[in-house]
Design a protein around this nucleic acid. Sequence first.
DNA 1: ATTCTTATTGCAAAAACTTGCAATAAGAAA
DNA 2: TTTCTTATTGCAAGTTTTTGCAATAAGAAT
Lengths: 145, 145
Amino acid sequence: MTHNTKDYGNLMRERGFRVTPQRQLILDVICASGNHTTPEAIYKRVQAKFPSVNLATIYRNLDFLCELRLVVATQIGRKMYYEIAGESPHHHLVCRNCNKIEQIDHTNMKTLFNKVEREQDFTVDMDHITLFGLCAKCRQKTRRV
Amino acid sequence: MTHNTKDYGNLMRERGFRVTPQRQLILDVICASGNHTTPEAIYKRVQAKFPSVNLATIYRNLDFLCELRLVVATQIGRKMYYEIAGESPHHHLVCRNCNKIEQIDHTNMKTLFNKVEREQDFTVDMDHITLFGLCAKCRQKTRRV
DNA sequence: ATTCTTATTGCAAAAACTTGCAATAAGAAA
DNA sequence: TTTCTTATTGCAAGTTTTTGCAATAAGAAT
């Protein structure tokens, strides 16, 4: 959850990108916000500290940070949500019925990724996947199709 | 690929929804189009047959058809793509570098889903997952981080 | 057939997101 | 430090997607 600005900064600079105050602030805000933050919410929190930041800058940086994989984008329903990527890969199970979110760790995913790599020569490289389905409770309740 | 209008119609009616000409046409167009069709392309093809259909109707029906899981939405980069869900579950591998799309079938996924169900009592229920990574060619090209 | 309920549509306006471009400023080089 | 290159920004205009609402029409009930 805590993020080290210096590391992120170096990561960017090493790749020829620049560390601007706007960019830092946007990353800070995403980091400080809980999971699943909308662009609009990020915009407002950024503006509270630095009112001149333009909405276009927010969107461009969300794209940028996702591309660097410092930030993860998730689409739920019609909306996009952003959250800090964090250290270790982990994945979510979202119940279609009650929307409860469980986590699964990377090991089972990794097994799948390895299999895909062996069989199709494609290196899957994702550390935040969202799988939808039914949790134990809802599976029992929803026992009629 | 082929779709049975009658079955889809009944599926909708059973659930209290209505089968309108617009809706049928939109589904037909998605069905006839290849994979990964944009809303704009769908709109144009629908208009070619039925010029009065409004773009808002396209969007509303895309949502609707996704909710019924007759159609699958995929986000690649910044754009949304839609395709017919079809019969058998299958999944996509999208190269982060060249955006090439490969398919994987359901068996390896199913293994993962089963494992998740045994270990966490969560029934994953997805028949179209998109995994990002690097294809064989791009993995070789991008051999410097 | 006719009536009735309400899901769905088209339209127009709004909201969300993207893009072109000139001005700015981060960071490397001198 | 100063200069130089060019990534990034703000702005304004453009494009894409969503929404409120009155009119329409699908399908059930009569």
